[in-house]
Design a protein around this nucleic acid. Sequence first.
DNA 1: TTCAATTGGTGGCATATACCACTTTCTGGA
DNA 2: TCCAGAAAGTGGTATATGCCACCAATTGAA
Lengths: 154, 154
Amino acid sequence: MSQPALPGLTLCNNATLRRAGRKLGRFYDDVLAPSGLKGTQYGLLYQIHIGGEPAMGAIAEALIMDLSALGHTLKPLIRDGFVETFADKDDRRVKRVRLTPQGRVKLEEAMKLWSAAQQRFEAMVGQEYAANLRAALDHVAALDFEMPAATPST
Amino acid sequence: MSQPALPGLTLCNNATLRRAGRKLGRFYDDVLAPSGLKGTQYGLLYQIHIGGEPAMGAIAEALIMDLSALGHTLKPLIRDGFVETFADKDDRRVKRVRLTPQGRVKLEEAMKLWSAAQQRFEAMVGQEYAANLRAALDHVAALDFEMPAATPST
DNA sequence: TTCAATTGGTGGCATATACCACTTTCTGGA
DNA sequence: TCCAGAAAGTGGTATATGCCACCAATTGAA
């Protein structure tokens, strides 16, 4: 299975992960295209959907993404009327997010497409293989890379 | 095994891959930071290094990335004097890429940092685990998602 | 009660990536 | 030879993400 076209770089865990991410991302994006949503947007809508009007910080934490990045990613979805934000009743600093009715419809539409992508992928690699891969990725995502506060050497 | 903090979304292969990518990417980026390079840039320099003055298309193919995306990603590296491009002798359409002397120095510097990141990661998950993960990711990257060009059947 | 520290988000800036419309070269016929 | 098509890149536009500097509420003392 080792393609001679991918020498060396294959050793870098980060590069390998990114490369696979590009490939898989394009696949999911292609399948989701009819809905007008990208894979990331679908994931974000879904996370909001199951989050129960989550605060932005909660979403960012769940997706392991920078809070400001989340803010940026959210903009097109707000602009297109799929989600809306509102201040938390008890803490004005907190901004909560929820799907609009339109957003719920869109999510449902996209979910069918997502399902197709998911099934097609799992049919190719095998459900168990996919489950194991996800488990491994979740494991990586759960790691605690505490930096030793710089190493002014070198 | 289901962490209460990551409900549902964990089922999407794409979302899981992205999430792990964000986490791992930040880790590698942090470790590489002293060199001024991002993880992706390091990977790109390395690919160019081992590619033998590769054409842009060859790099894009090896990294499974869009050709135009590669062009954009290359710009900061050219601007900072780490890589340079030149026309192919036999085919004027082809643009080849190589590291500048400065780029070689930078790559070497970054390689030490990368090595540290790589080792730290593998110490956390285990070398074998990492190797298996990379193999699985390479497998995904090698898949052929041929879209059936819509489904106007019936 | 008052103020320093903390917490939650925003905006600006830079890189990462993709797709699409072009432009320039090549290539393969007729 | 000449032209239709293919092949390789470029530029524009849009989303994805991260970091940093800020601003606005909250909180926890003193």
